[in-house]
């Protein structure tokens, strides 16, 4: 695996790794929502500053973090041009009836900025929180829904397993691509038909092995007494430490200030 993707866990020890998963999930949601609620430049500076500080704390290499943005390159690309061409306002360029507006340019850039923040924050969350911790946090947060007879624990288990196999599947794809490339499959150049044949040769074995793995996992879980989640207990109980409270305080303070700046800005 040569690439860290958002959604992958990066085993390491950092202050961010040690935080309670519930705190990290809550903070991520809040920080992701913030650029939509507070739009003044000053609040953005605050927010970006906080994200950069958190990134430093996480010990995630900057380059790896920035590389995760590649996953949304095309979405960002299309979003930018969509807003560029569809936002009305002060005309900047006019080419044969197609107008580009200053407002459109700004709107497009804003969308890209928000998208990048979303990806970086998600990446920071999953880089520093193992899937087991994520699931544990989620189960604890969604706990009240159990009263409504929602199978929270089971859904969380499904999610844990799915997350657990993300890196496995990527490793498998990489291996299959190499194996089929050695048999002359073409993934990069050549005509589309040949390229598609190459990908079929990767995805069929991938699904075969995924189903086999699912079956083995089910048997292994049953063999170790898994009977759904109702009788399940946890070895580690979640509890908030001083660092967690500090983190909550910082995130809330930054959010509040950003929103206040916004209010003042609109009053001015």
């Amino acid at each position: 695996m040569n690439l860290l993707l958002p959604g992958m866990y990066m085993a390491a020890d950092s202050p961010l790794h040690r935080l309670d998963p519930r705190v990290k999930m809550g903070a991520s949601l809040l920080l992701m929502a913030l650029p939509f609620a507070a739009q003044s430049p000053l609040s953005q500076v605050l927010l970006v500053g906080l994200v950069i500080a958190v990134a430093r704390l996480s010990r995630a290499p900057l380059l790896a973090l920035l590389r995760t943005l590649r996953t949304v390159f095309w979405i960002g690309f299309f979003m930018f041009f969509f807003f560029l061409f569809t936002t009305p306002g002060e005309v900047l360029v006019n080419i044969q009836g197609i107008t580009l507006t200053w407002q459109g340019l700004l709107a497009g850039a804003t969308q890209i900025y928000r998208l990048c923040l979303l990806v970086i924050i998600t990446a920071l969350l999953t880089f520093t929180t193992s899937s087991i911790q994520l699931a544990h946090g989620l189960e604890s947060v969604l706990g009240p829904l159990k009263r409504l007879r929602l199978p929270v624990a089971e859904l969380v288990m499904v999610l844990t397993i799915a997350l657990r196999f993300v890196p496995t599947v990527f490793d498998e794809i990489e291996k299959l691509v190499k194996a089929q490339r050695a048999r002359g499959a073409d993934f990069r150049s050549g005509n589309p038909w040949r390229r598609m044949r190459g990908w079929i040769a990767v995805f069929v074995p991938l699904f075969v092995s995924a189903f086999r793995r699912a079956e083995e996992l089910a048997i292994a879980m049953e063999a170790r007494g898994f009977r759904g989640a109702q009788h399940r207990t946890r070895l580690y109980q979640l509890s908030l430490t001083r660092a967690d409270w500090l983190a909550i305080l910082i995130v809330l303070a930054v959010s509040l200030i950003a929103l206040l700046v916004e209010q003042r800005g609109s009053l001015l």
């Binding site: 291996k175 299959l176 194996a179 040769a201």
Partner: peptide, 13 residues
């Protein structure tokens, strides 16, 4: 160069 990976039957499709 022909290369057979470990468990080459896993690449059958």
């Amino acid at each position: 160069i022909g290369i057979a990976f470990q468990n080459p039957e896993d690449q059958i499709f």
